[in-house]
């Protein structure tokens, strides 16, 4: 059974159509990268997956049942910024998931449980390369380290689905390449299903198993909100020609210009 399935999914805000007629199935273990112009509903799609927005029409199914209408443990997330809690050290951030689970009232653990959580969190931090920064607060970490921490914090809960919202958009190119390696290795070792939003099409072509392009196939330059975005390309990654990339780039470029001009 598909882990995520969309059936004729629409999302509208008033008379602005953001997404229209989305139909897709994603199997467990797939790594889907989502690219598209700004304003083409990538973030809205992520919010639908998170549960902070509900579809206007159609269905979003998780394991065949309607997706919960609020964020929960089944879907972990890493945002571009503010993903980790600024008042906790790296170690406390990673321990948080376990503490919340073990202490429903206080959210703080003591004694043996705490020791076990600490040990687990230390191992997790080591595996993302933050072994030296356990007791630092997020503001003392670089942008790349903060994103490593956010990954560690999300993955220690072993979510079935990991959502990444332009997680490396603010990082330097070299650091970004390191983070790609990290994400790929975590995805393989934890058997995750990953949805990653990016506006960097090359990143989308390099990472993951499947590439979705969100674009507006029908575009009224006078009213870009009249028609919504659809998945215009659904490609297996590493299996497409150079022309495709050029074609996608041109189409996405046109859309973003049209949206930009009317703003």
């Amino acid at each position: 059974m598909a882990i995520i399935e969309m059936k004729n999914l629409w999302k509208e805000y008033g008379d602005q159509v953001v997404l229209e007629r989305l139909n897709a199935r994603v199997e467990e273990g797939e790594f889907v990268t989502v690219v598209g112009a700004s304003g083409c509903g990538k973030t809205t799609f992520l919010k639908l997956l998170l549960g902070t927005e509900q579809p206007s029409r159609g269905e979003m199914l998780l394991d065949g049942a309607p997706l919960p209408a609020e964020p929960d443990e089944s879907r972990g997330i890493v945002f571009q910024r503010y993903s980790v809690l600024s008042h906790l050290t790296a170690l406390q951030n990673v321990m948080l998931g376990g503490e919340l689970q073990n202490s429903r009232w206080l959210g703080h653990c003591v004694g043996k449980t705490r020791k076990a959580l600490q040990k687990e969190a230390r191992a997790m931090l080591d595996s993302v390369g933050l072994g030296q920064a356990m007791d630092k607060y997020p503001h003392e970490l670089s942008g790349g380290m903060q994103q490593r921490l956010a990954l560690a914090q999300a993955l220690i809960k072993k979510p079935r689905i990991l959502l990444l919202d332009e997680p490396f958009g603010a990082l330097d190119p070299g650091i970004r390449a390191d983070m790609h390696q990290l994400v790929l290795s975590l995805w393989k070792s934890q058997k995750l299903t990953v949805f990653m939003i990016t506006h960097d099409i090359n990143e989308g072509f390099y990472l993951g198993t499947r590439l979705w392009v969100f674009d507006k196939p029908r575009l009224d330059p006078q009213a870009p909100g009249a028609y919504g975005a659809r998945i215009t390309y659904d490609l297996p990654v590493g299996n497409c020609e150079k022309n495709t990339l050029t074609r996608i780039n041109r189409s996405v470029g046109n859309t973003s210009r049209a949206i930009n001009d009317t703003l």
């Binding site: 998170l50 902070t52 609020e70 964020p71 929960d72 443990e73 879907r75 972990g76 997330i77 945002f79 910024r81 503010y82 993903s83 980790v84 809690l85 600024s86 008042h87 948080l96 998931g97 503490e99 919340l100 689970q101 429903r104 009232w105 206080l106 959210g107 703080h108 914090q153 999300a154 809960k157 979510p159």
Partner: peptide, 27 residues
């Protein structure tokens, strides 16, 4: 408080009370 952090707490399994005691109150 950034919306992201409140969503993050929920994806870590926090209930409303825990969001208050571990995120809102300390911050």
């Amino acid at each position: 408080i950034p919306r992201e952090q409140i969503i993050k707490m929920q994806t870590l399994g926090a209930n409303s009370w825990q969001i208050i005691t571990r995120l809102v109150w300390p911050q």
